[in-house]
Write a protein that binds this DNA or RNA. Structure first.
Lengths: 121, 121
DNA sequence: TCAAGTACGCAGAATATTCTTACATAGTAT
DNA sequence: ATACTATGTAAGAATATTCTGCGTACTTGA
């Protein structure tokens, strides 16, 4: 069904769903959550390996600093996309994973990937 | 077909398509294009009315200034999402519309809307 | 005893983004 | 002459984001 939607139908669906009032627009809210230099890369790493540890994320995402990784993860956690489990073993460590909400972003990323492969480069 | 994809299949599709190399990742490139306080609102107005004039955009998007509207439109144009046609009549005016590339973002916005309606508020 | 690993936190500097305010242009109406 | 319209530009201030470098607390292994 989704597959067969025309652009007019998409336009109609988006128009009727989205509230122009910026504060309550679901798309704007989501874009805000994904804003920031490292957010998507973190979510991507979580798609590849879930759960994943702090140190592994830092190793895989070249260029990110402790500070930015910590604060990005905090924001993703606050927004409900990522969950954090702390293990008070020896040595202590922390595992991050996608919540249901975070996992449900996959269809969006999939559409973005299709678009990107078509138009980028 | 898309409709029946499982999350595992989505994950697989995203994993195999996206290049980890940040510079070439299509999703990262797209997210960069949509970054900025006003980008999505401008695209939204263009979904509702296409073509649309500069002054009308400014009127509909509460709070935006000339400077930000101009620079956002310039960036959207540079990125190939929006096109600009100047009419040298009296008084002169300018019309903006979505390019094919910009229009093809609709399925993404549609998925974002579905996600947003499910999880925001 | 000492370095190394884990998972951070913090303060200040640097950089990027956005906002404010004023001005430009060109014809038309008053 | 002056104001008005539409579509911008420019310069500097304010704000937000990111980076740099250092510190913490704990434990293991050499």
């Amino acid at each position: 069904m989704d597959k067969d939607m025309t652009y007019d139908e998409y336009t109609q669906a988006v128009k009727t769903c989205i509230l122009t009032d910026a504060g309550n627009c679901p798309v704007t809210s989501l874009l805000l959550m994904l804003q920031g230099k490292w957010k998507f890369q973190i979510l991507y790493e979580l798609c590849i390996k879930d759960p994943i540890r702090f140190g592994e994320l830092r190793k895989n995402i070249t260029g990110i600093t402790n500070t930015m990784l910590t604060s990005s993860l905090r924001e993703l956690e606050r927004d409900g996309l990522v969950s954090r489990i702390q293990y008070n073993e020896i040595p202590p460590h922390v595992e991050y994973s996608l919540t249901k909400m975070g996992n449900d972003l996959l269809p969006i990323f999939y559409e973005m990937t299709k678009w990107g492969l078509r138009y980028i480069e």
